[in-house]
Design a protein around this nucleic acid. Structure first.
Lengths: 159, 159
DNA sequence: GACAAAGAGGACTTATTTTGTCTTAAATAT
DNA sequence: ATATTTAAGACAAAATAAGTCCTCTTTGTC
């Protein structure tokens, strides 16, 4: 019942890109370092994000990732579902054939509605909104101010 | 991001008991058979449900499980969280220490709200409401009418 | 054109969680 | 007493998630 790391990392990656100058190209290494994502894992995640049209990948010597759209045009649900597929909370929802008559099954209905509600919530939030005050905000993460307690603590993480 | 089988089974178990006469004692074997739950797995699940005060377990020759409260007094959230612990959708929510200032982190807030919404939805539903028309309803599951297509198809399952 | 830097793509490994089984012990009705 | 039924917990298998590695391709620079 938890978000996967891959989805977490994807959020952080897009968030970091959203905080850069519009159209800025950022290397994988930089993002990996700043957002605390295993570099090779980030490579995979980026590929998925690129397929979904969220970012553009530039190969070659001065390669890296660029945000493909304005942060306001990317919502949280899209990034999450790019990584984990369409959200569904139990099998009954995704395989209605298991129910003889899903539309009449009360249990089914509850989960279906909960899922829709969750998806709607995430869809409402875009990355422009998130850039304001996130734990990855420019004022918080960069090189390292004076390391008050924890060194690489980002939000949407915790450990 | 999915409900575990254990939680699914717990829902089916409580649902089945809710559909019996008030205070009826049902053997583990019967529940396992009717609700299509691996018998030994059901034993563990029942223990958790008993600890949570949802059911009572009677040992010995004519042993089995009894619903401890009226179905209207048991909500879906309680059964689910008995099995999987308190719902949280990402680590940031449960470990706010990972954020330097969680209350200001926009990402954190979104997930927190989504979680609360989900929990509220599940809390609103009790098992009296669910007994009406579920795929485990008495008219659907019992011995086996004439087996139209699928033999053991319950709701809140699918495969 | 050759070289070096950076990402693509996929195979592979490890870790973690979930699911399920089995075995021995305890309770209880008859 | 005995047979039945669950308790409790160790153990095994399977599934999923997380992470790493290796080879290939792309592209800027000299």
């Amino acid at each position: 019942m938890r978000l996967t790391r891959a989805a977490e990392y994807a959020i952080r990656c897009v968030l970091y890109l959203s905080q850069q100058a519009r159209g800025a190209l950022v290397s994988r290494q930089e993002i990996a370092r700043q957002a605390d994502i295993p570099p090779h894992f980030l490579a995979k995640i980026a590929q998925d994000l690129a397929k979904a049209g969220v970012i553009e990948i530039r190969q070659g010597v001065r390669g890296g990732f660029v945000l493909n759209r304005h942060p306001a045009a990317i919502n949280l649900l899209e990034v999450v579902e790019t990584m984990i597929g369409e959200i569904y909370l139990n099998d009954c929802v995704v395989r209605p054939l298991g129910c003889k008559d899903s539309s009449n099954c009360a249990v089914h209905q509850v989960w279906l509605q909960a899922r829709d509600q969750l998806r709607a919530s995430l869809r409402q939030v875009n990355f422009e909104q998130l850039t304001g005050t996130s734990c990855l905000s420019p004022s918080v993460v960069p090189p390292a101010p004076e390391a008050p307690e924890m060194t690489t603590s980002n939000c949407s993480e915790g450990q």
